[in-house]
Amino acid sequence: MSGLVGMLTARRGRLARDWTDWASLAYLLLGVLVMFLPVLWLFASSLKSDQALNAFPPTFLPWEPAQVAVPGQPGHLPLMQVTAGPLAGRRLAELRHIGLMAQMLDPARPGRVLPIPVRDLRPVLRLHASWSNFTDLVRRFNFFGYFWNSVLITTLATLITLLINSMAAFALSKYRFAGRDAVFALMLATLMVPPTIVLVPNFLIAARLDLVNSIWGVIWPGVATPTGVFLLRQYMLTIPDDLIEAARMDNASEWRIYWRIVLPLSAPALAVLAIFSVMWRWNDFLWPMVVLNRSSVFTLPLALFSFQGDLQTQWHYLLAMTVLTLLPVTVIFLFLQRSITQGIASAGVK
């Protein structure tokens, strides 16, 4: 009997299923809930009006009290469902309520006012996505300005990082010169100096170079990363020197050898460093907060942070802005998921 079960559940090319498979599946499903539901909740909430956000208990979808236009009445009136009494089941517009009695109008025949006890009424709800949260944000606040600052800083910083780190890695892996090992050791030593401990001096240097409130003040301090040099150097060591010798025979300059031969061959390592750099830059918070204090140069995380101080009571804007901030990252991740996760796993550093 057990042989039969084993035959039925066994799969090709692997060990038989046991309880650990079920346990791990259950764990992963639970993990998906914890990891992803909060984000989903944010997305759903960002579509609610200010009023719907204050409802407790909250609903997942943006249910709003329905309103109806009644001929002869200014504006819109709330639509109510009658739950008891002779008119049970009818949908009426509420004109006003006095004490426990409400004065209701039938939108089809608005001539007669119907008195109905408030306890027999329930508001009619309908689904209504408040896209205005997003459009207001773009119209009333400088969202695209912050977005542009973030894009500019991320792009420029990543390009410079790739360029100067690959140059250094090229020299450290392909030349022998006096002091090379000392230079490499010095760069590795900077692993021990994360930005958090040079906050004050770097602010002084940025002030001296007139980089405060400039995007270059955010970009420069982090472009030379020991992680990047190390990663690229290790990769370039695997490129055979014969290729370089052959190019020298053809009278290629050293610069040409670097960017025409070594750089293209290092593409996989460069891609990994690019992913890291974009991640660091897009999400950077503490240093930009120190060096940028004028809101026109704010990056998205800084703008979001200052918003949550200013708009504490306006969660509908805050949530919409949070969604817009995480959207670009999410879209990129959807497309490049496989290469991002594999690249990071292969680097295994930092």
Partner: peptide
Amino acid sequence: RGGRIGWVFVVPNLSVFGLFTFLPILID
């Protein structure tokens, strides 16, 4: 001559390190 061209490739990186990592430790 020789491998000393390597210095030219290392200098941009080293100057950023120097300005924003080594110098700051001393200033700290």
